[in-house]
Write a protein that binds this DNA or RNA. Sequence first.
DNA 1: ATGGGATCCTGTGAGC
DNA 2: TGCTCACAGGATCCCA
Length: 293
Amino acid sequence: MPELPEVEHLRRSLEPVLLGRVIARVRLRRRDVARLDGQLRQGGTRARLSRGLLSGAVITRLERHGKQLAVVADDQRCLCIHLGMSGQLRFVPTGQTLRQENHLHCVWDVQSTGQAAERGRLIFRDPRRFGGLWSYRNETELNAARWRDLGPDALQLTVAHLAAACTHTMRPIKSVLLDQSVVAGVGNIYADESLHAAGIHPGAIASHLREESLRRLLRDLRRILKHAIDAGGSSVRDYRDGRGNAGAFASRHLVYGRKGQPCRRCGDTLASVMLNQRSTVFCPRCQRRPSND
DNA sequence: ATGGGATCCTGTGAGC
DNA sequence: TGCTCACAGGATCCCA
């Protein structure tokens, strides 16, 4: 379940093998994962499809906002890649055989522009297909369309913005954290981890929290996200970076996936509730629910 | 307007 | 051993 740290680590792991390289060919094996100009493809020609998927482009930048990635080309074209739940983006150097992999939806042939013809393939796999590819003519269109409704990236979020999103709402604080229009990049893992670190009950009504609590939450969220990026992300099950390596942060989770186990801070047994249809793990002692909720 | 629930999808692991 | 079934969840849509 790639969240901000996983996508950021993926972005960094792909930069060395993609920047300055040209996309020689694209093979879209499953059409419904791709949207042209942000729209579900309807009768677009094969050429238009290839173009949207960056065929012939030289890759100049890899951008990220929240959990989404964008590959930007020298001619402005840009392809937004969202991994959803189980999506993987991986670079496979030529010579390394591409194992018979299922759910392989798109393959890009990548080669260097210089003398030494270093080649490889970039592959997009997504068994559960919650992810996808969205093509745009340029970054302005991406920002005006798909990224328009995203809040600030979690690493750029300010207390003022978070506090503004929390006033006048009866939603639980965890729902606010998971809301991508409030803050982009936080999913179930890092919501639970940051709330635990800040000592805030996930079900606490957002508008009842003091600014001091929100300040602590933001500080801990940012700290945890940065540590997770450095550790290569959390590989709970599927996540792999651009070279196929698992992340190491899952072993450092204090609450996520640890229901029934002792809290690593106070020793109390970690409890679990459903919130937003998500299993939510917290420590009943470290994260007391305010009495007025 | 706000927020909660159902929905999509497949692999995994528990339990019989 | 092999089967069934619940569960995992990001985003989107629908409805109260």
